[in-house]
Simulated scan of single mutants.
Amino acid sequence: MPIPLNTSTDSGTAPPPEDAGWLVWARRWPRWAPYAAAVWGGAYAVVQAVWAVTGTTVPLTPDDSYTSATQGVLAGMGVVAAGAGLAATRTWAGWRHAATTVSLCAAVLVYLLGAASLPAHFVTLASGSGVESATGLANVLLHAAGAGLLIPATLSFWRRHRNQCPRCGRFHEGRSSGALVHPAPSVASRRTRTAVFLLMGGLLPWAGVKTIWTLGGDAIGVTAEGWRDSNADASGIVKALASVGIDVTVLAAAAAIFLLLGLMYPWGQVFPRWTLLLAGRRVPRLLPLLPAWATAFGLSLYGVFILVVFVPLTALGVFPEMKPTGAFTTSSGLLWMAAFGGMAFTGLGFGLVLAARSYATRTRPVCAGAGTPVPAPAG
């Protein structure tokens, strides 16, 4: 059986040199992640309560803001998250285990939903457009941090309940905070690669139309002149890219495609020769996984809502007809662009989900005390 989380595996001597400093701290994440999640939950509850009492405006969408009542509910959710984090430091049975599991899962879902707009904020900042709302960005970052702490806390809690090593997830005895053995670099399975490339194809209509506009063409009721006029107040970076036919959001999608390829091929596990000084070194596992996880959920959620709910119900007349706005001169053109956006974000989001899952499976290390891992599984 693996060593429980609160049981020391050391013999009373200092850790070896390779386990010193930040490395040993990182390797012991199952021990501190639940406590960190609990501290974060308390801080989050205080922030939401202060915003509610002071009437601080925190945007929910470009047109709506959180109400004080909603912020009060979120503050209560922070208290629940703090309690669940503390409960996750122990192994429970019966209803206590069920209550802890439900609380952790509910908190993770709430904070993932709250962080869904993180990709949009990233593109806005990267384009040099500045911060539209400081409290809005702070709120999204708070939610992202909460999800980022509660997910590993939940993972370690589940693994300990199943008598697995809380860190690597294998069944083994001995230390769970020593060195890790990593699988050899590998390629994602043919099925995964095929699915991801098909999903990436959803970007083509959306990126194609935007490229036509930036290159001076007309499409779906938008003229090149109208497109330029609608972006007259854009940042210098956006205008510079548009002058050479590159839309900043298409460039961001290209960066996501680069991430997708890295998740599926060996150069995402070992730095290739063109990275110069880093060439041949192992890529830190979280380096591609964190941005993939941080963007996949929001893109998938937004894309599915637009493609499956908003566009069909608008076309059927259930939702009000979209009024032409900005560079758009027809409602149908605006609806087509919404459909193209839904296809793009759905494809990119689910592509990241599949590629990140494959990468996480293929690169999953094992504690050195458990022996040499088997070759990387197909993913």
Score class of each variant (00 low, 15 high):
W25V: 09
S300K: 03
V50F: 03
G136T: 14
P17H: 10
L204T: 00
V238R: 12
V308Q: 08
I257R: 02
A294K: 02
M1V: 11
P324N: 13
A120S: 13
L199M: 03
W213H: 04
G136P: 14
V366S: 04
A52C: 04
G94T: 01
V39L: 15
R191N: 04
P15H: 13
G217S: 04
M77R: 11
L137N: 14
T330M: 06
L286K: 10
G12H: 09
A38R: 01
G333K: 06
G72S: 15
G342Y: 01
A43E: 12
V123R: 09
V244L: 04
G245I: 06
E132Q: 12
Y359Q: 02
G114L: 10
P375T: 02
L299S: 01
L180P: 07
R193I: 02
A106E: 06
P266M: 02
N163L: 00
G55W: 00
G303V: 00
R160Q: 13
V308R: 07
L142W: 14
M343L: 01
L348F: 03
V318I: 11
G268P: 03
L316P: 11
G174D: 00
T7Y: 00
K210W: 05
A360I: 05
F310D: 03
G245Y: 08
V79Y: 13
A38F: 01
A81E: 14
L149Y: 04
G208E: 05
A20Q: 12
P284N: 09
P377M: 05
S358I: 03
A81P: 11
V73W: 15
Q71M: 10
S186V: 09
T61I: 08
A224Q: 06
W40N: 10
W40Y: 13
L301N: 05
P291D: 02
L277H: 07
A116L: 13
